[in-house]
């Protein structure tokens, strides 16, 4: 573990810390909107990790001069991660929109967007079902 190694890997570790903050929000929080925000944070930190792999020290953005006379001395960063992440950002917003629409429907159906409340309602519904139809179905479902 040389000093150079630690400095060279510190960016990755920071991104992983961010990622884990997002994951924690997704797992530990009961509110659905908050879960989506956590998912977004997680996603963005994955993007940062990818982009940081394509970075070259002293490099510049992968855009040639307009006349396409490329100076062989210029170092360009790797454009491939950029392309992949552009696609991922757009797909990410699509999934976010779908999740939020689902939340609106859930709120309409249950009157709440808290996981605890919804699980409670579901539990009571199952209890009710068991009480009414339990015998016909051959005991508790």
């Amino acid at each position: 573990m040389s000093w150079e190694f630690i400095v060279g890997h510190l960016p990755y570790w920071l991104f992983i810390t961010l990622m884990m903050t997002g994951l924690y929000i997704v797992v530990a929080k009961g509110n659905y909107v908050k879960k989506i925000v956590g998912l977004n944070i997680f996603q963005t930190s994955v993007f940062m990790l990818y982009i940081s792999i394509g970075k070259i020290t002293g490099g510049t953005a992968p855009i040639f001069p307009l006349d396409l006379e490329v100076d062989p001395e210029t170092v360009y960063s790797n454009p491939l991660p950029h392309v992949l992440i552009l696609t991922a950002i757009v797909v990410g917003i699509a999934t976010t929109a779908l999740g939020l629409a689902l939340i609106v429907r859930i709120r309409e159906e249950y009157g709440s967007i808290e996981e605890d409340v919804i699980l409670d309602i579901e539990y009571r519904l199952t209890q009710h079902e068991n009480a009414v139809h339990g015998d016909a179905m051959g005991g508790r479902a």
Partner: peptide, 10 residues
């Protein structure tokens, strides 16, 4: 990180 396209999409 030199990813200008990604930056303005984000």
């Amino acid at each position: 990180l030199d990813a200008v396209d990604v930056a303005f999409t984000e």
